[in-house]
Write a protein that binds this DNA or RNA. Structure first.
Length: 396
DNA sequence: TCTGGGGTCCTAGGACCC
DNA sequence: TCTGGGGTCCTAGGACCC
């Protein structure tokens, strides 16, 4: 008989904020975790939002993803720091490396979260003690804290890591579901977002326990068959998905730009579209992909989004080809006048096949486009090298 | 106060074919 | 002249995650 699984979910507490705090402290600055502080994008952009908030900031009602301007209103003395992605990547690597020592069966869930399957390693040992060692090792070596959630499946482990923070270990075994999970607000359940919460509450489903008690049939009318079945399983603490060690290949690549003031002229929109096309195509080439579907979308002032996508005859990684498709579709969806808040471009249906097209009708300009892209990639690489060099110097 | 950026998956409806 | 049912592919939109 298979004994029960033991899964850990490890979650860095206020990741970007903690990581920034560690970075600042290395430069002799005080610990921003102890005061109201947030990490944001460009703090000077009035549209930038809170990426991570310290616990004192959260106590003042500041929430992740709210505009920085709003957070400043709640807390005029708030410290606002710009995030440093290169540093975060390094912190993430260090964090995963330590976790992997506890179990090689590791699935990265995001930059600051992972699952590890401890079923084999933990045999005969108290999982809580092992988790405490793991959490302390991360704290002592890397200088930031994590929560470890322990459960008999990924869902329970993940839910457990959300309990009291920071620097804590919690269990949520199947037999604890009724006591620890059912009283929680239904919104706390993984995959229950704002819209689903509204629907469920309209039907009197307020807690995870309420959800667990409903039939799949009654839930299906609310959220569709597949999602209903999943919600019902999860609310009852069941989840048979396994810890996937393989990193899945990307299915799409996209980029978008939000203008600091809603803009409207065709020229401005086209410039933004050109910029995102360069970014997307560059990332496509760097990952050695070709794409056969291009999509473009715009977001209006009222946040409504309109999108068009189109298949192209030959998979491509050429900026100009992608841009031309996007331009044509943009003309389809934009009236040419309405102010636009955001414009985005994506590619999907990605393949690694590099089918050299032998068509007689191949556009003779393609060679020119390819050369243009090659130079773009080269300049980008040089720029990145220079940045990395400057970064390493600064660190010493 | 005025809402980023980057992803995944699901569903519904239309076109088209047999 | 009017008509069923099923399958596949595609697009648009919407939900969720961090």
């Amino acid at each position: 008989m298979a004994h029960r699984r033991v899964i850990f979910h490890i979650d860095v507490n206020s990741a970007f904020l903690s990581w920034t705090a560690v970075q600042l402290m290395q430069n002799g600055l005080p610990d921003i975790r102890l005061v109201p502080s947030v990490v944001s994008g460009d703090p000077n952009d009035r549209r930038s939002i809170v990426t991570a908030a310290s616990i004192p900031a959260k106590k003042m009602g500041i929430k992740t993803a709210e505009p920085v301007s709003m957070a400043l209103r709640k807390c005029p003395g708030l410290i606002v720091v710009r995030g440093d992605w290169e540093w975060y990547r390094q912190c993430s690597e260090g964090f995963l490396e330590i976790c992997r020592r506890y179990s090689p069966v590791l699935q990265q869930f995001s930059i600051d979260e992972c699952f590890i399957d401890m079923t084999l390693r933990n045999w005969g040992e108290d999982p809580v003690e092992v988790a405490a060692r793991l959490k302390d090792e991360i704290k002592n070596t890397l200088g930031f804290t994590v929560n470890v959630g322990i459960g008999s499946n990924k869902l329970l482990a993940k839910m457990a890591s959300e309990f009291e923070k920071p620097d804590k270990v919690h269990t949520l075994w199947q037999e604890e579901v009724e006591e620890k999970m059912w009283p929680l607000d239904v919104r706390e359940l993984l995959w229950v977002g704002k819209k689903t919460e509204e629907k469920l509450k309209m039907y009197g489903i307020r807690t995870i326990g309420d959800l667990a008690g409903r039939s799949i049939g009654s839930l299906t009318r609310l959220v569709g068959k597949k999602f209903a079945a999943q919600l019902h399983e999860n609310a009852n603490g069941r989840d048979d998905s396994s810890v996937e060690t393989e990193v899945p290949e990307a299915k799409s690549i996209s980029a978008e730009r939000t203008f600091s003031n809603d803009i409207g002229t065709e020229k401005e929109i086209d410039r933004a579209l050109f910029n995102v096309a360069c970014v997307v195509a560059h990332r496509l080439r760097r990952a050695d992909f070709h794409a056969s579907c291009v999509s473009v979308f715009i977001k209006y002032r009222d946040f409504s989004v309109v999108q068009r996508q189109r298949q192209i005859s030959q998979p491509t990684d050429i900026t100009a080809v992608i841009l031309n498709e996007a331009r044509a579709m943009l003309r389809d969806i934009w009236d040419g006048e309405s102010p636009i808040r955001q414009v985005g471009l994506g590619v999907s249906r990605l393949t690694h096949e590099n089918a050299v097209q032998m068509s007689l009708f191949e556009d003779p300009k393609l060679d020119y486009y390819r050369e243009w892209d090659r130079k773009y990639d080269e300049e980008k690489a040089q720029h990145e090298d220079a940045r990395l060099l400057a970064y390493e110097r600064k660190k010493q």
